[in-house]
Design a protein around this nucleic acid. Structure first.
Length: 107
DNA sequence: TATTTGACCAAGA
DNA sequence: ATCTTGGCCAAAT
């Protein structure tokens, strides 16, 4: 997986998201001046900078966590850990959903 | 160069 | 509420 300028942009923007806040793929893409929501997700899939780029802090527009690490079958235990991590940052999650209105960071 | 794919989104059935 | 469809853009093949 080779990194591209687009990915770098995504990472840079994502790095700016403070703790206790989240953002959506859509918001990120649009903040970059594009509508490539999906491309943003692909950048995450690569995720070359583990702690610098907090993929767990990026959620889908509907408030769900998204796919992340291979989205384990029915239980998605990995995703669940991330949910806990987000909660640890002060984000409230209800039934695997994030309160977007309160926690989405304005880019 | 062309086709496929994807951690998405919104609207319709 | 769940599933399908079409659309969107960039990266990978």
């Amino acid at each position: 997986m080779k990194q591209t300028s687009f990915n770098e942009k995504v990472y840079a923007l994502l790095k700016k998201v403070p703790k206790g806040k989240v953002t959506t793929y859509k918001a990120l893409a649009e903040a970059l001046g594009t509508k490539a929501y999906r491309a943003v997700g692909q950048a995450m899939r690569c995720n070359p900078y583990a702690p610098k780029v907090p993929c767990h802090r990026v959620v889908s527009s509907n408030g769900t966590i998204g796919g992340f690490m291979g989205k384990n079958d029915a239980n998605s235990n990995e995703v669940r850990k991330k949910i806990l991590m987000l909660m640890d940052e002060g984000i409230k999650i209800k039934n695997d959903r994030i309160d977007l209105d309160k926690y989405t960071f304005r880019l």
